[in-house]
Computed example of a mutant assay.
Amino acid sequence: MTTPEQIYAAVVIGLLLAAIGISIPVLKGIYRDGLERQAERRHNDIETETTGAEPTASDDATGDRKRLPCQQCGVENDPAFTYCRNCLEPL
Rank of each mutant, 00 (worst) to 15 (best):
E36Q: 13
V11N: 01
R85M: 10
I20W: 02
A10E: 06
V26P: 00
R67A: 15
R32T: 08
E89V: 15
P25V: 00
G52M: 04
E54Q: 12
L16V: 14
G63M: 04
F81M: 13
P90R: 08
L17F: 08
T62F: 09
N77C: 07
Q72Y: 06
I7Y: 03
E47V: 14
M1H: 06
D59G: 10
T50R: 12
I30D: 00
L91W: 00
G74N: 04
R37Q: 09
F81D: 12
P25N: 02
R41L: 14
R67S: 14
A39S: 13
G29T: 01
A18V: 14
R67M: 15
R32P: 00
N44W: 04
L17D: 03
A9I: 08
R42F: 13
P4K: 10
L88C: 08
A80I: 09
E40R: 14
I20T: 11
C87F: 03
L35V: 12
E36Y: 07
I20H: 01
K66Y: 05
I22E: 02
P69C: 06
P79G: 03
T56H: 02
C70A: 07
P55N: 02
R32D: 04
N86A: 15
T82C: 04
T3E: 05
Q72C: 10
E47C: 11
N77H: 06
H43L: 12
E54G: 11
Y8R: 15
P69Q: 04
T56C: 06
Y8K: 14
V12A: 10
V26C: 01
G14I: 04
T56L: 10
T62R: 07
G29I: 00
I30M: 07
R65F: 08
N44S: 13
T51L: 07
T3K: 11
Y31T: 02
R85S: 13
L17I: 13
T51D: 06
T2K: 12
M1S: 13
K28E: 01
P79M: 04
V26M: 03
L16Y: 03
E36C: 08
R65A: 04
L17Q: 09
E76W: 09
G34Q: 03
A18R: 10
A9D: 09
L15A: 09
N44E: 09
L68D: 05
Y31A: 05
Y8V: 15
R37H: 07
D33M: 09
D78W: 08
D78R: 10
P55E: 02
T48A: 12
V11E: 01
S23A: 05
Q72M: 11
G63W: 02
M1T: 13
